[in-house]
Amino acid sequence: MAFDDRSKLLRRYVIDAMRGGGRGHLGSSMSMVEILRVLYDSVLKFDPQNPQAVDRDRFILSKGHGCLALYAILADRGFFPVSELESFCRPTSRLGGHPERGKVPGVEASTGALGHGVPIGVGIALALRLQKSSSRVFVLTGDGEINEGSNWEALMAAAKHKLTNLTVMVDYNKLQSYGRTVDVLDLEPLVDKFKSFGFVTHEVDGHDVSALETIMEKLPFAESAPSAIICHTIKGKGFPFAEGNPEWHHKSGMTEADIQQMYDCLA
């Protein structure tokens, strides 16, 4: 599937930031560009001028190492200037190698240690329900990330509390840090696992913008259960040298030639 201009633009923003910082989680960010794009273009309620507005929807990027894609969409949507992306990882930048609440407008939780987003998301969803708020909570995790048991503790609790205002999404790119998830720790049958933990669960091609829009329009999937979307993605999507290649999970010491090679892929 060829990217449209918007998917290319957001990827270009990611590269701008990587060029500024000389590093970044390329593979991890590129697998979730379309997921974030659809969330921020068509699903989430937010006001970039008032990022703390009480009636906003909450999005938590639990796989915080994918923050380049989050910074790209937040900048694009006006939470901070696009020109700030090139400050990525510089000493006094707001944009660190993992996203921080209170520093980056639009970031709800400081993540980076894997396995924290779902428990926090459950707490927020419970709080919003207590406050009779109609705001929703979305958490995006990695696939390797859900090796962590804390996720499953929280998933069980979300089902117990019938959190219809909570949607957990998995960026199922089939790779983690060392290699393939089937080799490191196979998650299959993943959809059945989520279902058996009490989530009404759907699968989608996580790079297909209209399929993502269609499925997210159906949220919440049930009247008394939380929702889950397993997004099938490709790590490093759009960059042939990086697609499916664990070497590109994270890169540092990038040269101008490396960066140019990346821009060329989007030409």
């Binding site: 779902v118 428990p119 419970l126 709080a127 406050q131 804390s150 503790e153 609790a157 117990k160």
Partner: peptide
């Protein structure tokens, strides 16, 4: 009853959950 939570044996989760509640003003 709304403000009383007896959760499972899951200390990692309850601390994260408490953080989420506190982020929203509780």
């Amino acid at each position: 009853p709304d403000r009383f939570f007896m959760e499972g044996v899951s200390e990692q989760y309850i601390v994260g959950m408490a953080a989420g509640l506190a982020m929203e003003g509780f």
